[in-house]
Write a protein that binds this DNA or RNA. Sequence first.
DNA 1: AACATTGGTTCTATAATAAAACCAAATAGC
DNA 2: GCTATTTGGTTTTATTATAGAACCAATGTT
Lengths: 148, 148
Amino acid sequence: MKQKSFADMRCSIARSLEMIGPWWSFLILRDAFMGATRFKDFERSLGIAKNTLSNRLKLLVDNGLLSKDVEPDGSKYAKYHLTEKGRELFPVMVAITQWGGKWAVHEDGPSFEIIDKRTNRNIPPLALLGSDGQPLPEEAIGVKPAST
Amino acid sequence: MKQKSFADMRCSIARSLEMIGPWWSFLILRDAFMGATRFKDFERSLGIAKNTLSNRLKLLVDNGLLSKDVEPDGSKYAKYHLTEKGRELFPVMVAITQWGGKWAVHEDGPSFEIIDKRTNRNIPPLALLGSDGQPLPEEAIGVKPAST
DNA sequence: AACATTGGTTCTATAATAAAACCAAATAGC
DNA sequence: GCTATTTGGTTTTATTATAGAACCAATGTT
């Protein structure tokens, strides 16, 4: 009984989770955002088994979230970089980071913070905006199922 | 070799993923946001195996994302409701929905959309704000590792 | 040239998941 | 009030995924 796939579901959340992949994949992307590019970078940071890492990286490359590039910097070891598709997951990272900062924080505090470089201060919570571009009051949030 | 836990990592993203749980858990929460409350609601919507659903629900309740309540409405079947901790994952849902709406959308279109009820129109992308509350330019985004 | 590091692959053991069968309690239909 | 159905599970079994270790060739370092 193989693991069920979300890939044929219509819901964008399910499809996104399927595309990102399970577990480790998200942390691999996190490290990519933090500057990791090499197989060893990810392995060291995550303490992940090499075969698992290898499979995850392949999946992320196949799904277009990372690219595996041979650099013109002299080295023959490839580097993994976020694609545009991968980079656009940044708001998801921020949303989870902010949630975790409130509800899942380590006793020693978080390992990193997302800041406004101009002021070196934390950024405020991600803002839900209404169709007018102004902050969206909670009672105005709605979910509309597809009509078809 | 049991599955590695993220629970003792310091990173808030890792800790959040651990707390939410694997795979299905996120879709269970999605359905909770969409109004599902009963075991059967989740089962029908997800097509999930009952034992897996049972385990996931227990985990989500144990981790404080859902509460299992006996309702005063006459029924003796319990209902699952999002706690405040669970409800505050809404921005994460929105972020993934918006990403998926761009990068993982089904050929028939998304199954639902998040709207501004006042206008019945889609909401714009979640906004990253700077410490001044104004939109944060990309070059001002920084990540600061913990000093200690 | 010798040694260490990198980026894997292969193999085995264990844990997680799916599917199906089963069941008691609750609810609905008559 | 009696019967049938639905609900909310648990148990059992089969399969898949993951972790860990050992191994290896290519690369990079001294």
